[in-house]
Amino acid sequence: MNIEIWITYLSATFIYSVIPGSGTINTINNGMVYGFSKSLISIIGLQLGLAFYIILIGMGLGVLVSQSLMAFIVIKWVGVAYLIWLGIQKFQETTTINSTDILVETSEWKLFRKAVFVNLTNPKTVIFFAALLPQFLDATSSHYLQIIQMGATTIIVDTCVMLIYVILAAKLAYYIRSPMVLKRLNRIFGTMFIGCGALLASAKA
Rank of each mutant, 00 (worst) to 15 (best):
E4C: 02
W6T: 05
I7L: 14
I7H: 02
T8G: 05
Y16F: 15
T24H: 01
N29C: 08
N30S: 11
G31F: 06
V33G: 00
V33H: 05
Y34H: 12
G35E: 02
S37F: 07
S37P: 00
K38E: 06
L40T: 09
I43M: 11
G45Q: 06
Q47N: 12
L48T: 13
G49A: 13
L50C: 06
Y53T: 10
Y53L: 05
I55M: 12
L56T: 15
L56A: 13
I57N: 08
G62R: 03
V63P: 04
L64T: 13
Q67L: 14
A71T: 07
A71E: 04
I73M: 12
W77N: 14
G79M: 06
A81C: 14
Y82W: 10
K90E: 12
K90F: 09
T94L: 05
T95H: 11
I97A: 03
N98F: 02
S99E: 12
D101L: 04
V104K: 06
T106K: 07
T106R: 09
K110Q: 12
K114P: 00
F117P: 03
F117A: 12
N122P: 08
P123M: 10
T125G: 15
V126Q: 04
I127K: 00
A130K: 01
L132C: 03
D138F: 05
S141C: 03
S141L: 14
Y144V: 07
L145Q: 14
Q149W: 10
I156W: 07
V157C: 04
D158I: 06
T159C: 09
C160E: 04
C160L: 15
V161G: 10
V161T: 10
I167H: 07
A169Y: 03
A169C: 00
K171C: 11
Y174F: 13
R177P: 07
V181M: 11
R184C: 10
L185S: 11
N186L: 06
R187K: 13
I188P: 05
F189E: 09
G190R: 01
T191V: 14
M192T: 12
M192Q: 08
F193M: 13
G195W: 12
C196S: 14
G197I: 00
A198L: 13
K204D: 00
A205R: 06
